[in-house]
Design a protein around this nucleic acid. Structure first.
Lengths: 107, 107
DNA sequence: TTTGTTTATCGTAATATTGCAATATAAAAA
DNA sequence: TTTTTATATTGCAATATTACGATAAACAAA
C-alpha cells in the first residue's frame, strides 16, 4: 500500500488535493509569500531568500509550477518566476464557496 | 534527509502548510465536501461514503481534526463530525488576501 | 454480564517526500 | 572558444504518508 487511491475520487477532488499538496510545505508557502511581496518578479533570489540548498529550491519551484501555481519565464540566463493569478483565484473561489454553503448545522 | 526544515520558517507559514497538508489528499477533500453537502452532521456514514476501509477513514478524520478543520462531538456510540467554520474562514481569508495583493506585475 | 455497534489504535508493508552533493545544461560574457 | 553565471537533473539516504487487517476501547441494548 502507501499509494493513495486517487482513482476512486472525482477529477475535481484530485485536482484540488494536488493544489493543496503543492502548498503543503512551509518552503513552498514561503515562496508564494515572497513572490507576492517583492515588487518585481524576482527569480533566483528565491534561492537566497530560503534556508535551503539550490537544488532543493529548484525542486520546490518545479512542484509549484507543475500544478500551475507559479509560472516561469526565461530571461537570458535567469528565470523569472511569478504567481499564476488564475490558480490563486481558483483557490480563493474554492473556500469562498465553502463559506457560502457553511450554514451552522450542528456541533 | 527527508524531514522538512520547518524550524527555519515562520510559525504562520508552518501553520498554513499544516492546514494545506491536511487537505492535500483526495479522501480528505471528499470528507470536507461531504460534510458540506449533507443536511445533518452525519458521522460514521463517512466510512460508507468513501471507498476506503474504516481504519483508514478514521485516520483521515484524525488528521483533519488535529489541525482544526473538523470538530467531533460524541453522541452515544457514534461521533458527529462537522466542519469548523473558523478554520474555513481562515483559509478563505488567506487566499482573498493573496488575490487582493496580486497586482499583475510580470510574466 | 454478555452481545452488538461504533470508532480508535497498533503494527506493518508499500510508496512518496525531503534534502543535498555531484553533476549536467544552457545562455551570457570574456 | 573558454569561462562564468543561473538553473535543472540525478542519485541516494532519511523520513513521512497511505492503507488495512487485527485488535482494542467505549458504550448501548439485551
Amino acid at each position: 500500500m502507501g499509494a493513495s487511491k486517487s482513482e476512486f475520487f472525482s477529477e475535481q477532488q484530485n485536482e484540488m488535493a494536488s493544489l493543496f499538496k503543492a502548498i503543503s510545505h512551509p518552503a513552498r508557502v514561503a515562496i508564494i509569500e515572497y513572490l507576492l511581496r517583492v515588487d518585481s518578479c524576482i527569480c533566483g533570489d528565491i534561492v537566497n531568500e530560503l534556508p535551503l540548498a539550490q537544488p532543493t529550491v529548484s525542486q520546490h519551484l518545479k512542484e509549484l509550477k507543475s500544478v500551475g501555481i507559479i509560472k516561469g519565464n526565461i530571461e537570458g540566463t535567469a528565470i523569472c518566476y511569478c504567481l499564476n493569478p488564475d490558480t490563486m483565484k481558483k483557490l480563493e473561489n474554492y473556500f469562498s464557496g465553502i463559506s457560502n454553503n457553511l450554514i451552522m448545522k450542528c456541533c
